[in-house]
Write a protein that binds this DNA or RNA. Sequence first.
DNA 1: CAGTGACTTGGGCGGTTGTCCAAGTCAAGT
DNA 2: ACTTGACTTGGACAACCGCCCAAGTCACTG
Lengths: 223, 223
Amino acid sequence: MNRMPVAERREQLVEAALAVASRDGIEAATVRAVAAEAGVSLGVVHYCFQDKDELLRAMAHAITERNTVQGLDQIPRGLPVAEVLELAIDALWASISSTRGSQLLSYELTTSSLRHPELNQVAIEQYRGQWAAAEYVLDVVGKAAGVTWALPSEELSRIVVAVVDGYSLGWLVDGNADLALRGLRGLGGYLATLAVPIENGAPGSGAPMDDDAVAPQSDESPA
Amino acid sequence: MNRMPVAERREQLVEAALAVASRDGIEAATVRAVAAEAGVSLGVVHYCFQDKDELLRAMAHAITERNTVQGLDQIPRGLPVAEVLELAIDALWASISSTRGSQLLSYELTTSSLRHPELNQVAIEQYRGQWAAAEYVLDVVGKAAGVTWALPSEELSRIVVAVVDGYSLGWLVDGNADLALRGLRGLGGYLATLAVPIENGAPGSGAPMDDDAVAPQSDESPA
DNA sequence: CAGTGACTTGGGCGGTTGTCCAAGTCAAGT
DNA sequence: ACTTGACTTGGACAACCGCCCAAGTCACTG
């Protein structure tokens, strides 16, 4: 094999682990399988990572980092909240539904983390990332539509993450993408009822609305 | 060991498998560990089950069947829909939050099922059971409060299952039961806005309400 | 051009897994 | 009392796992 500095080799191995685990499941991501996927011999993995667990943690970190939301910068301003939300949700679902293996791997990583002390931090990092991402998206959407939200953004992001998680799981099980997307659009409709227009002279818009502030739902995608 | 007919022995082994897997995770439920938990020798397991997979399927079937909702028969009639929903949700959450290991095992079973062809039917059976249970609960609640729902019950049950799943996962990760319960009560508040009183002379009640029928959320617990 | 050290190799180690089986034990029927 | 067959036992097997290491290879520096 081509010689390569450790740092670069590590990235390659993480990539290989991600490929194997997304395709065949986290249990299939053995040291041997990762080495074979990367086209290197067995010893290389333990030369670059102290443990198999360290490799798995690096892989989890990579897949979590990759879940950053994309394409939010091109959301047009001045649209009604409901429409902005629909755009955001459609984009989110497109990115989720096109990466089934990664989605499934994310849930496998979460449950594995909750069982094995060596992966202790993985799950909480995953969800901290998702809650923060949801909060950020809600902030961007709110600014694009000129509204604020009737609920604290931590609660709202929890709602978004929970609902997206729930529908993603359901979709993984039954394979019905349309049903899931319709459900998520419903979440968008619910969120729209929580939008409060900014009194400021700015050209806001969207669903005005009372808050009878009931609340919870929410989640940001684990893609 | 005491002699025992196969059928009875099978039940005992399923119980042992459930104990091991709930406590230590699905990976820890090896044939040896299950035999030890049941206090029988190794060969007994393969005498009662053809495969390890057959044992796992039987275990999954048992845990899914056990998720039937309880205590619904003692819901008082004539209460406002919002209060009935809160009662139901509090009971549901009490049963979820008191069985952390089983909840986690349910998610492990789902992901395992989605990866291994031998467990193919497990996940879909789990969710069919949960969607049906949610539908049943919504029906009971509706009758107790004298209302019907503004959305088709299949969609509503999907919402319930998705939201409960999402919040359960979040709770498994961060351990914050209060936050999850508050979130689920919010789901109850949302559902209340979808309740339509029955015109019939019956003493219904609860939040009346327009349906702007957006929709989805929902889930029934995997306990 | 020689030497040094980072990187790679492939096999071996002990442990665990699912599966199998020859032999043993015990309750029930004749 | 003896036979039969359901049930149990404990060890063996091959396959796989994570981990380790002595030896080899190559790029680079002096």
